[in-house]
């Protein structure tokens, strides 16, 4: 039972963070609060992908003793690399892209929030809906 919890608690961690973000997106009425919830949600998804790249007792995916080999020609370079010694680099690459896209989404969302504030002079969702109904 204890081993099962140690092996699986990282999934429960990201589920909890995702639910916190989703709760903020659903119930908070302030638009900036909704955007903060969206940020937490996306971080939780990235957390899930990164934690799928972990192997027990490995180091960062930068190959050791590889500097300077390229200067001496490629025949020294093709020594065998033990893949079990390094973390899985593929989720890191995908999540590097996802973080930058996350900030792009954040910028567009904040621009839309500023536009809404310029038109209705408030950021609260219920007041915006009332103003739309009044027009």
């Amino acid at each position: 039972m204890f081993d099962f919890i140690v092996d699986h608690y990282n999934y429960w961690t990201y589920i909890g963070l995702m639910i916190i973000g989703f709760y903020a997106m659903m119930t908070k009425r302030n638009l900036i609060k909704k955007i903060i919830g969206m940020n937490i949600f996306q971080s939780a998804i990235i957390f899930f992908f990164i934690s799928s790249s972990v192997k027990k007792g490995v180091t960062v995916p930068i190959l050791e003793h590889a500097h300077g080999h390229a200067a001496h020609g490629l025949e020294h370079v093709t020594h065998a690399v033990d893949a079990m010694q390094y973390a899985n680099p593929l989720p890191h690459v995908l999540m590097l892209t996802a973080i930058v896209v996350m900030v792009a989404t954040l910028g567009v969302a904040l621009a839309v929030a500023i536009m809404i504030y310029r038109k209705y002079h408030t950021l609260e969702e219920d007041e915006i809906i009332m103003a739309i109904k009044r027009d």
Partner: peptide
Amino acid sequence: SPYYLQHSIEHTATPNVVTSV
């Protein structure tokens, strides 16, 4: 990902596998 780790230096001459991918 083992393919990337084993052939990264041979194909791209970069020790950092993340940037080579």
